[in-house]
Design a protein around this nucleic acid. Structure first.
Lengths: 127, 127
DNA sequence: TATGATGTTTACTGTTCATCGCACGCGCAC
DNA sequence: GTGCGCGTGCGATGAACAGTAAACATCATA
């Protein structure tokens, strides 16, 4: 039993209870069997539910879908596709960018992103 | 038959032949069956070989492993893991960063990456 | 004490993935 | 004309994936 899966499982249970759903009720809404939901919440599955089901859960729970999917240990398909696409053209660019932005706080990263957007407008990142 | 898979298939064949390997020989070195290799080269598979096998192929062909894997339509596990990890903490940061860097040329992106590395050293990206 | 809702366990299922074995046809060398 | 290496088509397979059904124990309520 993987650790991150267990963690996600208890988070799911917590959020579900916070919304006042019973296991069976939530399972029905999320379109899975109570059996399966129980297993997921206990971390008794080898791998997380599919991205699609996770998306549905996130919606029901009022969570950010992308984050919810990531918490469960999957990559949202749209993100994966975009990254793969770029790596075809420039294999090292993405890994390098990831390394470079590694230590940054969320705030620094946000500011940096804005900066880039601006530079694109005004032309060139080194005026 | 997906289009990118076909494209990758012919690229693989081209590179293999450039190295002077016969299909059987290369299959043996890459640790797959000739049958399967033939199918992959013809784009007659639904999905690309696993990342591990692709890595082995890249090595034999002298290609950049990450790019090779990306060309085949897969994400290198290490990259996927890193991205997923960050999205757990900050769900929107990565998508935003991808959007922001969308139009940049490889060169601009490289310069940007260097810039970030520098700013990290000197403290703060807005002096 | 019967009823009903709750969550859990065990065993099982259909599907997809990733790959292989075998038999085949082709061209060239001997 | 037979043997050899080449690539290919067809069918099959074992493992992994993503769940499900049915029966169960526990507790509250009527």
């Amino acid at each position: 039993m993987r650790d991150d899966i267990r963690l996600f499982g208890s988070l799911l249970r917590e959020k579900r209870l916070a919304k006042g759903y019973s296991l069976r009720k939530f399972a029905e809404l999320a379109d899975v069997s109570p059996t399966y939901l129980s297993q997921v919440e206990q971390g008794k599955v080898e791998r997380p539910p599919t991205a699609e089901r996770l998306r549905k859960m996130a919606e029901l729970l009022g969570e950010n879908a992308n984050q919810w999917i990531a918490m469960a240990g999957r990559l949202p398909d749209s993100v994966a596709a975009e990254i793969a696409d770029r790596m075809k053209r420039e294999p090292e660019a993405i890994p390098a960018l990831l390394r470079a932005t590694k230590g940054l706080t969320a705030d620094e990263l946000r500011r940096l992103t804005e900066q880039i957007e601006q530079d694109k407008q005004t032309g060139g990142n080194k005026p």
